[in-house]
Write a protein that binds this DNA or RNA. Structure first.
Lengths: 205, 205, 205, 205
DNA sequence: GATGAATGAGTCTTCATTCAT
DNA sequence: GATGAATGAAGACTCATTCAT
C-alpha cells in the first residue's frame, strides 16, 4: 500500500521553532532569576523549566553570561520602547505637562516586569556585557538633556547636564522605589503630582 | 553533610590575636568583594588575601553569608554614624540650611568606601540577613519623616510620608549616582546647591 | 551554600549508558565501603574507583546518604529475595525440616556479600533512611511469627511474638556470627544441626 | 605585712584534678556520641561539653581514636565487672539455675548505658584498637566454654566450642535486642524463662 | 598543666560547559 | 537541531590536630 501522502509540514519552519525555543529559554531564565536570585540560577535549571535540554540552551546562548545578557538587553529594549513610543507626543506638551508625562512614562517603564527589573538591577554583576544592566538609565539621561535643551528658555537651571543628572537620578529612584517598595503608591495620583512638583519646581523659575 | 546555614557570628574574640585576625578577614573580604564582585568572592580567596587559613575564617564567620553580613553591618554602621553624629547640630538650623546639611551628610556617608558600597548595593542578594544592605536607607527615611514633622508649619507638602519617601529617594539617588558615576561632581559646589534647591523648592511653599 | 540533604535518587536512567554508570558507582561504593569503612568512604573516592567523574555520582545520588542508602536497599532486597524465593517450598515441610530449611536460608542470606553486610550493619549510622539497614531483620521477624502461627498446634511455646523474637534474634545472631567470625563453620554440617537443634528443642515440646 | 599563711592546698593534688578532667572528658564523649552518633562527634564538641579546652582533651587522649578507645575499654570493663563479680556465685549453681543466672547477668550487663553500648556496637569502625568494641563478647565466649567443660557430664552437646559460640551468640543477641528494641521485655519474667528454656533445652539432654 | 587560636587537608556538593549519539 | 550523560574545576565548610602563650 502506498504510504499516505503527507500534506502538512512535518514541522514548523526552522526559524519559527528556533524562535519558540529561544523564547521559552528566555522566559524560563527570567522566571528562575526572579524566583531564585542570580547566583542560584543555573543553566541546567533554566533548561529544565524551559522544557528543553541543556544542550539546546547552549545552542542559542554560548554561556550563562550570554543568556543573562540577552535578558538584560530584552528588558532594556522593552523599557526603551515604552518610553520612546510616546516621546513624540510629549515633545509638544507644555513643560509641566511634559514633565508629568515623562515621569509617568518612566514609572510605567519600571513597571515592566518589576521583579525581573529588580533582580537585574540588584544582583547581576556589572561585568563584561552585563555592565549594560543600567543601559536604560544612561539613555534616559541623554533623552532628558536633549529635552531640556529644547526648552531651555523657560528653565531656571543653567547647567543642563547637571540638572539632567539630578532630575534623572531623582525620577529614576522615585520610580524604582515606588515600583519595588511601595507599589500601592502607583495608584495614588498624589504620587505623580508630587514627583512632578519636585521636578517642575526645580527646573522652572 | 550540609547543616543549616548559620549566620550569626560564631564567637567573640577574647584574645588580642583574634581581634587582629577578624580585622584582617573583614578587610580582605571587602577588598576581594570590590575587586572580584560578589559571586566571584570565595571564602578561600578571602582567607588567602587575609593571610589566614580558611579554618580561621570559619572560626569567626560560620558562613559566607555571615561574613558578608558582617561587612554589611559594619558599613551600615559607619554610614549611620557619619550621619547621626551631626544630626543634632542640624536640627537647629533653618530649613534651607538643614536640607543642605542633610544632603551633605548623605553624600559624605556615601563617600565612605564607595566601591564597597556599590558592590554591596548592586550585587549582594537581599536574602536572609543580607536583606539589610539598605538598612541605612530605611532608617534615613524615618529620620526624615520626624524632621519634616517638626517643621511642618513651613512646608507646602501635606503627606509627609510621601514627601519623605520622594525626597529621600531623590537625595539618596543623587548622592549614590554622584559618588559612583560622577565623582568629579563632588568637588563642584553647584552640585550641592542644585540638589538642595530641588529638595527645598519641593518642600517649601 | 548548604541546601537540605536530598536522599531520594535524583532520576531514573533512560539511556543504557547511564545504567552502566549507576552500576559502576554502586559497585565502587560497595568496594570502598568494605575496604575503608563508612567514614573513610568519600564520594570522591567512590567516583574515582568507579571510573566516573564526581559529577556523575551526584547525577544519580544526590548525597552520600542517598548513595549508601541505595546500597542498603539493594542489599536488603537481595537478602529478602534469597529467603522469599524458597519460602513456599518450606511451608509444606514438617516442622524440624522447616526450621532447618529456614535457618539454612537465613545463613545463606547472610552469606550474600558478607563483608558489605558487616560494614552496613556495624558502621552505617541508623539515621534517616539509613535506619533501614536492619530492615531485613524486621521483615524476618514477621515471617517467623506467621510461620509459627501456622504451626501453633505442635509448639510448646505460647507467646508466639516472644518466641519469634527470641528465635529470630538467636538465628540471626548465629548466622551473622558464623558468616563474619567463623566462616569455617559454614561448611561444617554440625553447625546447621546444632542451630536447628537449639530452635527446634525450644519451640517443640 | 606578712602574707596570710595558706593552710589549705591551693589546688587538689595533681592526680585528682587530672582524674576529674579525664572523667569529664569521657562523660562528655559518651554524651556526644550517644546524641550525635559517631561521625558527627567531634573532639572540639566533646571539649566544649566537657567544659575543658580542646588542648586538654589532647593532653590526655592523643587522638580521637584514643578517646573513643578509652570509652570502649571503660564500657567493656564495666560489662565485664558486672558479670565477673557474680560469676563465682554462679559456678556452684545447678545447670538450669546457672544458665538462668548467666543470662540474667548478660542482660544486666547490656543494660549498662545501653544507648552508649548501641552506638559503640553499631557505629564505631572496628579498626585499630577500636576493634575491641566486642572484646566483652570474646571474653564471654571463653568463660562459657570453661563453664560448659566443667559440667560436661550432663550435656547433650559434644562440640563445646560450637555450643558455646551458638549459645553465646543467641544469648547476646537476645539480650542486645531486648535492651535496645524491646525494653519492656526486661520487666517480663517470661522473657528470662523463655531465654533460659532455649539454652537449657539446647544444652541438656 | 591549661588554653584556645590557628591550621589546612580533605569532604561534600554544585554547575557551567562539552560532546557523542 | 536536539538530547542528556558526563565532566571536573571550584566552592563552602568541617574537624582532628598543633603550638604559642
Amino acid at each position: 500500500m502506498a504510504p499516505k501522502l503527507r500534506t502538512v509540514p512535518r514541522k514548523r519552519p526552522v526559524q519559527d521553532r528556533s524562535r519558540a525555543t529561544v523564547d521559552a529559554i528566555l522566559a524560563a531564565a527570567a522566571q528562575v532569576l526572579v524566583k531564585d536570585g542570580f547566583d542560584r540560577t543555573s543553566t541546567n535549571r533554566v533548561a529544565e523549566v524551559a522544557g528543553v535540554s541543556i544542550g539546546s540552551v547552549y545552542q542559542y546562548f554560548p554561556s550563562k553570561e550570554a543568556l543573562v545578557g540577552a535578558l538584560v538587553e530584552r528588558h532594556n529594549e522593552a523599557m526603551r520602547a515604552a518610553v520612546l513610543a510616546e516621546l513624540q507626543r510629549v515633545q509638544v506638551l507644555p513643560l509641566e505637562a511634559a514633565v508629568r508625562a515623562v515621569i509617568e512614562l518612566i514609572v510605567r517603564a519600571h513597571a515592566i516586569e518589576p521583579a525581573l527589573h529588580r533582580v537585574l538591577m540588584e544582583q547581576v554583576p556589572r561585568t563584561g556585557r552585563l555592565a549594560r544592566v543600567d543601559q536604560f538609565a544612561v539613555e534616559l539621561h541623554a533623552v532628558i538633556v536633549r529635552y531640556l535643551d529644547a526648552h531651555r528658555a523657560r528653565l531656571r537651571v543653567q547647567d543642563l547636564d547637571l540638572a539632567a543628572f539630578l532630575a534623572a537620578s531623582a525620577v529614576e529612584a522615585m520610580a524604582h522605589g515606588a515600583v519595588i517598595y511601595q507599589p500601592h503608591r502607583l495608584d495614588d495620583p498624589a504620587f505623580l503630582d508630587e514627583a512632578t512638583a519636585m521636578v517642575v519646581r526645580y527646573l522652572i523659575a
